[in-house]
Simulated assay, not measured.
Amino acid sequence: MSTSHPQSPPDGAADDEPRPEPIRFYGVSWVDHSGGYGARRAGLTLSALLLAAMGGTLLFLGYSGLDSSETAGWLRAMVVIAFAICTAMAATRTWIRYTRPAPENAVDESAFRSIKVVGFVGVFLAYALRSTVEAPGEKLRRLDYETAVARHRRRTAKRSGHPARRRRGKRA
């Protein structure tokens, strides 16, 4: 079994051809859905759902602790609202990152890191839902890769061969 580097060109491909960008947990198997792609996608979907369930259980236990410590009702309500809003925002931002290209004037994703930490259940749910369709981010990577390959083919098709071997016209 040969282990080729994900950035090495496939057999018969030129060194200057564009190479697909690897996706976390999938490498470049998303290009042709090889190397256990389906099993990996199913496993990651189930893992993300399991982590979301465990996170929900953890949040429930935390809320139960607030409830048993006789914390004020308004404070318990604020905690639930904060987690619900952060979960919804984290799920939405994660889903959008997997399905749409980032706009030119996009806000830096690191500004939302704390919201994603608090709403971690939403991140896991968005990952699990996207994994049921394809590898998260595959649509965007495929679009970029196919555009780069098409651009490369157009560029190389215009060449008529090695310039030194061209026949030169007769000089007068």
Rank of each mutant, 00 (worst) to 15 (best):
M89C: 14
F83S: 10
I81F: 09
P103K: 00
F83V: 13
V80W: 04
P101Q: 00
I85F: 03
C86Q: 03
W95M: 10
A82C: 09
E104W: 05
P103C: 03
A102D: 06
T99W: 05
T87R: 02
L75H: 03
R97W: 12
I81Y: 06
N105T: 12
A88G: 09
A84Y: 01
F83T: 09
A90V: 09
T92R: 11
A102F: 00
V80I: 10
T92G: 11
A90I: 09
A91F: 15
I81T: 13
P101T: 00
R100L: 10
R76W: 00
A90W: 08
A77W: 04
M78K: 07
N105C: 11
T92S: 14
I85W: 02
N105H: 13
R93P: 06
A90S: 14
A77N: 05
A88I: 14
M78L: 15
A82W: 09
A91H: 11
A84G: 05
E104T: 08
A90D: 12
T94C: 06
A91M: 15
A88H: 07
F83N: 14
A84Q: 04
P103R: 01
W95R: 10
V79M: 10
A90Q: 06
I85Q: 01
E104H: 08
A77Y: 08
P101H: 01
V79A: 11
C86G: 08
A77H: 09
T92H: 14
I96H: 03
P103V: 00
A84P: 04
P103M: 01
R100M: 11
P103H: 00
I81K: 04
F83M: 10
W95A: 10
A88F: 13
T99S: 11
C86M: 11
A84H: 02
W95I: 08
V80G: 02
I96M: 05
P103Q: 01
F83W: 10
V80A: 07
A90N: 09
T99E: 06
A102V: 04
V80L: 07
M89V: 15
I85Y: 07
I81A: 14
T99K: 10
A84F: 07
P103W: 01
A90M: 07
I85S: 00
A88Q: 08
A77D: 13
R97F: 14
A90E: 05
V79C: 07
R76P: 02
L75M: 03
L75F: 08
A84R: 06
V80F: 05
A91S: 13
R76E: 10
T92A: 15
R76N: 06
I81P: 03
R97N: 14
A90F: 04
I81V: 14
C86F: 06
A91I: 11
V79L: 04
I81S: 09
L75C: 05
I96Q: 02
P101V: 00
P101G: 01
N105G: 13
W95N: 08
R76V: 03
N105S: 15
R93D: 11
A88E: 08
